[in-house]
Design a protein around this nucleic acid. Structure first.
Lengths: 329, 329
DNA sequence: CTGAAAGCGCTTACAG
DNA sequence: CTGAAAGCGCTTACAG
């Protein structure tokens, strides 16, 4: 590794001066600047960011803790973020927990030890330990996807999105509406979407049979199983199903098709997520698009604000959604 | 930021000793070690990786330059990589070019300036400038997806995968086989897959009508258009189509369905990629699964080997694929 | 078993 | 307009 000192020697100046041309700070005469620039080009010298960070206390890196790569949600979010961050010459240091919950805390610490300028957490759930870790982190921080008390967050409006779906069903004439959810320890997807469903049903004074409310995990197969339970166990068969994710909905759809139910005539179906899949299954799935790229940009702006110290305290941003009405209803 | 010095003072020892317990190196008496450990826990002290890197010249970070987040390919690759890297406590510093080609070089330099221990490039194409940049990078480096001369690479066996598909068609009794490709400046997807098609056709002494060979870009819409051109312009209609990506195949499928062709009876269809989509379109798409998670792990191992100096020079790894025969053929 | 000191590669007052 | 020197937070010979 070539250093600033060597460049200085080669250009017959002090490292101070080299530093000045590197950072465009202070005065440097034109001939000297040219000389230095030439040496830099010839040698292909790149200054060490570590030494720089050590002095300046800035790294231009944002740490991102995420549960899993490759879900459309995280991909879209990260795309949005990295686009916005790139404008300000920030980069992303990834910490992929691969759904191992304990790793969240480990990685938060690791990122801090790397002196990242800020941390973004794509949160799937919240627990006491995580919360207290976040508190004592004491660096710019934004949580996405879950509303964590005391910190800035960007969340979807899960509750109203769910209500909107029930409203759509009712407008289409449905009154027997089943529900496929996930565990409520996931506050956004599990709890809030379910609450939206239950509250909307109550608003419309519609009964909810116990068997209509089933739970899966985040994959297609469990949607299939949940739908199966609904159809096999219900005393009164529903005419519509709201699944809290597209994958669950697609699983439900597969069960229905395999068993000869026509969609949407015999059973209407709605998911959430606007996954690519939802558009290409047959019939195409009615779903809700949360604007994740947009969310990513918001997150980037938030954290950048905190870093620059312009932040006026804790912010809660709730993003809009779009209802995509397609053939499954 | 609390530093090692302050810890030392609080524990009434020198920073040397603190460093020793931090790194489990050298001798430290048990009582002293306990005292230091306690102070560290109380204060929540985390050592600065920058200062560390500056001294040790190691960062435990691998830079990854990728064209776009969120394609299944890159997601699966990164998942594979990050899993393997995590085992060795390495992290990933992301540089997302968002398909802007000039950024590749910019990011390679940036990553180097961040003293990453190695760089992985998910390459979409190669040009002279990029090549010479890679040459003078002079740090552990692995390219994925394109065979770049002079460096270690992990690539799919695009050529034989394409041949395999034609073989499958022939076995099913087809002889009039059309092709939807992409621009040949993409050596793997564009050139090699096309070459595989052409060579296989020649091997079987099958004619290739000029109109049967069409080109799209990497999206569904262009597959639709390409299929349309094939059907409208061909003097002799094909009975089978090989599209070089699943998205192109899905587009082609949509055109065929809209225009009343039954699949696979009137037209057989095969893609490449094993995208989630391919499984859930109707009919399900026959495709080739390149083992991307596996590729990610291989890449991680390769770069780790280079870093540890155990590398025995340039390596070329060609990954296996699986043919997934489904309903579209 | 423990510590003083040098040094990693930068930046930044300060002095001239 | 330019440079000498201190210092960022660590680690590591070296000495005791």
């Amino acid at each position: 590794m070539i250093t600033i000192k060597e460049i200085a020697k080669m250009a017959n100046v002090s490292s101070t001066t080299v530093s000045r041309v590197l950072n465009n700070s202070g005065y440097v005469s034109d001939p000297v600047r040219q000389r230095i620039l030439n040496v830099i080009k010839e040698t292909g010298y790149v200054p060490s960011e570590h030494a720089k960070s050590l002095r300046t206390k800035k790294t231009k890196v944002i740490g991102v803790v995420l549960p899993r790569m490759g879900t459309e949600t995280s991909s879209r979010l990260i795309n949005g973020m990295s686009e916005e961050l790139a404008k300000h010459e920030y980069q992303i240091l990834l910490a992929n927990t691969n759904l191992e919950r304990e790793k969240e805390i480990v990685y938060l610490r690791l990122l801090k030890s790397r002196q990242v300028d800020g941390i973004v957490l794509l949160a799937t759930n919240i627990n006491e330990e995580l919360l207290s870790e976040i508190k004592q982190l004491n660096i710019p921080f934004v949580a996405v996807g879950q509303d964590i008390p005391g910190v800035s967050t960007v969340v979807n409006d899960d509750y109203h999105a769910a209500k909107e779906i029930i409203k759509l069903f009712v407008e289409k004439g449905h009154s027997k509406i089943a529900f496929i959810g996930v565990d409520e320890s996931d506050r956004s997807v599990g709890y809030l979407r379910k609450q939206g469903y239950l509250d909307a049903m109550e608003d419309y004074k519609l009964p909810v049979e116990k068997e209509w409310v089933q739970k899966g995990i985040f994959n297609i197969e469990s949607g299939y199983e949940a739908m199966k339970r609904i159809m096999e166990k219900s005393f009164i068969a529903p005419t519509a199903v709201f699944a809290v994710t597209d994958r669950l909905a697609v699983g439900a759809m597969r069960y229905l098709k395999e068993n000869g139910y026509s969609i949407p005539q015999e059973m209407a179906l709605v998911g959430i997520g606007a996954s690519e899949l939802s558009m290409y299954v047959t019939p195409s799935l009615t779903t809700i698009d949360f604007l994740y790229e947009r969310a990513g940009k918001e997150v980037a702006s938030l954290i950048l604000q905190q870093i620059s110290g312009k932040d006026t305290g804790q912010k809660k941003i709730q993003l809009n959604y779009r209802l995509l009405v397609r053939d499954s209803i």
